[in-house]
Design a protein around this nucleic acid. Structure first.
Lengths: 348, 348
DNA sequence: TTTGGAAAAAGAAACGTTTCCTCTAAGTAT
DNA sequence: ATACTTAGAGGAAACGTTTCTTTTTCCAAA
């Protein structure tokens, strides 16, 4: 069906040498004389030879494809991480196959199996919120396919990960709010079963403690990453006698919902209530009232994840050590929490 | 290196039948007796056999991988189209390799060649703004690799496309503004060399004509898809003696910039000036002043592009007809242009 | 002149499928 | 009982590489 491609045999016939020699010449094998190598190279380009990556992959077991599994591709955070991975891996000749789990463990498992089946050289993933079981990950490891977690990990022996220091992020965000003079800081948390949300929460608590501010359970509301969820949280918080003077949300969408609801109630931001979000989604910057948010350095995260992967496959020795990288968050301070002088370090 | 996989030979040995029979049984070839087929199927699952897609691909020339080339992966529009493609193609056993051109023709060519080299079964692409030459597309066609353009196309014989009716979109948007009572409608256009922007512009002009409103060149400003670009456009427009009372922007980011600049100048939206954007980026909905925008039905676009592709590869006959699909835009009317009663059909 | 040995190249198997062709055994028609 | 058909299965080549092993070539040392 497809147009006939030129193979090393065509080259070998034309030059009256063996296909083996052609292959070696093209691969710069030192056993080949410089003369032959040059001749082969020249002829190859002349004949418009293109290596068949399939045959090559079949022979040596490496496809030069890697898979990425994320909950959603159209979340700014994830697409930026993917771009980071791409920037590191494309120059090395890798191709990236992207899959979405839609936050469903079932899909995640399916996608992972499909990737393994398609002979991927490695897998990058951010586990879905509903993932509990680690069997699929172990299966990948058994097949000697390196897995690198980013952002959301799950503990599996031998699996490397690149994550944010979420504890520090929670700590920083809270510290910033306290620095603005806030005393009654509420926290909109995500599902505490996910490490990342747990850590943000712990960072929040730790910073309260540092400043001898009493931790109150009633100020912590579990939210999803939906705008409505943030609105409901405000609804609930404003039923309290002692209302908060700050909101630290573990997600930008919930923060946005909270802000909309607060405005609705005529509450002034940041004068009466300061708000900090999480993820530095693009919209946080574009709002009429730009939202302070924690940046997870997604580009960096992707690049480092890619580097970790490369180390694992380059290291011919099977010493592929489990590597745990933790990145530092950056707080982008914007109007939603700036009671003091205008902060110049606003992200662009 | 990799753990030994079980092959059809292992199955054939175990059952004392030939590998050919195993292959046929697994592929539901009618030449195989029901008994044998069942036995093979059972044994295959028992032995945890997984088909080697590489070997299969090498043999029959199809990889079941398709490539997608977009300018940027983290634009809501593009990631949604990709998701649409994915939803159609994943159930068919395809995998999707995603590449970014970063709006550079050079990258686009490179990525396309890499995809061809990696033996892709088809290519979906939205051409970069800087693409002029069509040689790379022709090359793909020569290699019998179907190409489907979406949104941004370029004319190449035999290449199918799925695009928005941008003329209609421009017409609709303008009509809506006129309907709000606007008489002096400015247009923030993209690069008119790109078909999509040209068509939006033509639609705008056509609607003005329909209502006998004089077209004025000075009301059309060329902008990029940057916020700043929208601000500058307002800057320029407000130097005119006769200032516009509406803005139809061919991009949401420029619309956002325009709104910010208008507010800066104390101009009331929508009372004094109505604004309509294009693309229905998520942020348009989240703004304090939600922005009216044209939705390009990206999910649908992706799905249809996938269907067009499937038709081309399924139709064994080489009759692969060039197919041109044009989708209808939807206008999501929001506060930035609603002078009349609150529109209930606001997108969610 | 022979021999040893390095350098260069050739031969052939292997990767795991699919599929064309051939063969066997059984069933059917004569 | 014989010849003919056909369902079912096997053999082997092919897809395009890579690489292990073997062979050839060539030059210098004995």
């Amino acid at each position: 069906m497809k147009k006939d491609k030129v193979t090393i045999y065509d080259i070998s016939k034309k030059l009256n040498i063996s296909a083996a020699t052609v292959s070696r010449a093209l691969n710069n094998n030192p056993k080949i004389s410089e003369k032959t190598r040059a001749l082969v190279a020249k002829t190859a380009t002349e004949m418009n030879y293109k290596q068949n990556r399939l045959a090559q992959a079949l022979k040596n077991g490496r496809t030069n494809n890697v898979g990425v599994i994320v909950p959603y591709i159209n979340r700014s955070f994830f697409s930026s991480v993917i771009r980071g991975i791409e920037e590191e891996l494309t120059p090395q000749g890798y191709h990236i196959i992207i899959c979405q789990s839609h936050e469903e463990a079932e899909n995640e498992i399916e996608q992972l199996n499909a990737l393994l089946n398609t002979q991927i050289d490695g897998i990058f993933m951010s586990v879905s919120k509903t993932t509990q079981n680690t069997d699929h990950i172990k299966k990948a490891m058994e097949e000697q396919t390196p897995v690198v977690f980013f952002d959301r990990k799950i503990d599996v022996e031998g699996v490397s990960s690149v994550v944010l220091d979420d504890f520090k992020a929670g700590f920083m965000a809270t510290e910033h709010l306290i620095d603005q003079g806030c005393k009654k800081i509420a926290h909109l948390s995500g599902d505490i079963n996910l490490e990342i949300y747990k850590n943000r929460y712990e960072g929040y608590k730790a910073d309260l403690q540092k400043y001898d501010i009493e931790y109150k359970d009633e100020l912590v509301i579990n939210t999803s990453s939906k705008i409505e969820s943030g609105m409901q949280a405000i609804d609930e918080l404003w039923k309290l006698k002692d209302k908060p003077d700050a909101i630290f949300s573990a997600g930008d969408y919930a923060a946005l919902g909270a802000i909309q609801e607060l405005k609705q109630r005529g509450i002034k931001i940041p004068e009466e209530v300061c708000v900090v979000g999480f993820s530095n989604e693009p919209f946080t910057k574009y709002m009429e009232l730009p939202i302070t948010s924690v940046d997870q350095t997604p580009l960096m995260m992707g690049k480092i994840a890619a580097q970790v992967f490369l180390e694992q496959v380059k290291g011919d020795q099977a010493l592929s050590i489990e590597k745990k990288v933790v990145l530092s968050p950056e707080l982008f301070i914007r109007d939603s929490s700036s009671r003091k002088i205008l902060n110049l370090s606003d992200g662009v």
